[in-house]
Each structure stands twice: as C-alpha cells, then as structure tokens.
Amino acid sequence: MPDLISYLQFVLAPQMLNGLALGVSVILVALGLTIIFGLLDVINMSHGEFYAVGAFGALALSALGFNYWVLIALVPILMIPIGVLTERFLIRRVYDGGDRHVSTLLLTFGLGMIAEDLLKIVFGPNTHRPENPLPGATEVLGVFIPTYRLFLIAIGAVVIVAVALVVYRTRLGAMVRAAAFDRNMAASLGVRVGWVYSGAFAFGVALAGLAGVLLAPIYSVFPTMGHDFILMAFTVVIVGGMGSIWGVVIAGVLLTQVQAISSLVISPVWADPIVFGVMVLVLMFRPQGIFGRIGHA
C-alpha cells in the first residue's frame, strides 16, 4: 500500500501534471496553426519558425533590458506587423493562383527554411536559455511541480478561452468566420475580406510568437527549435478537426496524456508511435477530425 501511494505521488500524478503542461505548450503552438488553416485555408509550414522568431525576439529584447512579463505582451504585438507583411506580400500572391494548398504549402515551407537560416546567421547555432522568471517548485497536493509550469498551465487556459471568445463571440470573429465561409458573400455584405485575411494570419503568427516567449524558459532557444512542436501541433490540429479551436484543446490534452502515461509503461521511444497511431485511427474513422472547421461549423 505505501508503494502504491508512493507510485501515485512520485510517478503517476507528476507525470499527468507534466503531461498537462506539455499539452498546454502544444495547444499554444497549434492554436495559431488551426486559425490560419480554418480561416485562410492555408497550411502554414513556417509556423514553427514564427514560434522560433518569437522566442529569439524575447531573448534579444530581454538582453536589451526588457522585463520578462512585459515581453509576454510585447512580442506578440511585434509579431503582428511581421504576419501582416508576410500575408500581404507573399501568401496573397500565390493565394488564388492554381492549387492553393500546394502553392501556399511550398511557399511557407521555403519561408520556414529561410527564417531558420537567418536565425542561425544572426544568433549563431548554439543554444540559449532565458532565465526562468519563476524559479523553484510549488507543492500541489503533495506533488512538486515547478512554479513556472503551473503558471504556464494557468496562462495557457486564459489564452485559450480568450481566443475562443474572440473567434466565436465577437463581431470581429463573426466577420472573420463569415469571410472564411463565403468570401464573396461576406465581401458583398461590406466585410473587408483582404484585411480580414491579413488580420487572421497575423493573429495566428502572434499566437506562435506568444508560444515562443512562454515556452523559451522551459525548452531553451536555438535556431532549429521550430521543428520541435510542429509535428505534434499538426497532429493535434488534424485529430481535433482542421480549424476547430475546441478540437485543438481536446486533442492536445488527450494526445499528450496518452504520451505521458504510455511512456511510463513502455519505452519512451514508443510513445510517439502510439500518438501517431491515434491520429491514424481518427483519420480512418472520422476523417474530418473530432470537430469540424470554424467557417463550416
């Protein structure tokens, strides 16, 4: 019996809490991805690099003396013009030319490679790590968890609810969803579709930047960090239903818990195949994912 309690306290409970922190991290990266896909119908392969740009931006600005808490707001705001310019001058040019999925996928893929190399040239190939703004651990029901991860779970929940409210409950969100559902009809009703598209893309990019700032103290900062979460984020978006925000949240928590708990019983190397196995099963029996798409729901 003491063994069972010690197992719960030292192994299972921390594992599930860590899984939750990891889940929030994945959801933060996947949110921007699903919004850009759901609203613009663009598969943004450079999303991971926008995440990296956010993290390096935070690193550079904190070297200039900015407080970490200021950066959580400042970096996403600075990412907005980057997102608008990318959409205006790059995405839009190939948007209507032929096969939209293939051309935007190739464009953003190339953009990601360029961004990664630029980060390597500017910051060098080595790893950096911003100081943890909340060092130490907090005891929650007998389980020790680093304070910063608790903060991450809390702020992640706030961000998710805020994004969902903006998309589903505001007039702005309604305009965006209308533009995604029927572009011509929305335009004829007076919605400025061009700005809506730029804005939606920039919103997704800003969310990627926010994820970069929030995750940097845990996962460290290096030029190829964009590859880190992107595979998992795409999986979450596919399982949750392309474009659905609640789908991302549910799939994100589900898959990271599967990963966390399965790696207790089997070799951790096999945890990833199990997660992708779940994705394959979902695609076989429910190809549209758990939820539908924002514009088409």
């Binding site: 192994v11 594992q15 922190a21 790696s263 207790l264 070799s267």
Partner: peptide, 20 residues
Amino acid sequence: EVFAPLDSKDYSQYFGQLRA
C-alpha cells in the same frame, strides 16, 4: 536506467521514475 529519444523536448516524464 532509462533511454530517452535523441532530441527529447521534455525530460520531466522520466523524473518520476528517477525520484522513485
């Protein structure tokens, strides 16, 4: 002993076993 995949993001999943 535990073997983590190369390029692991998060080692916290092994800390439970390590502590125990």
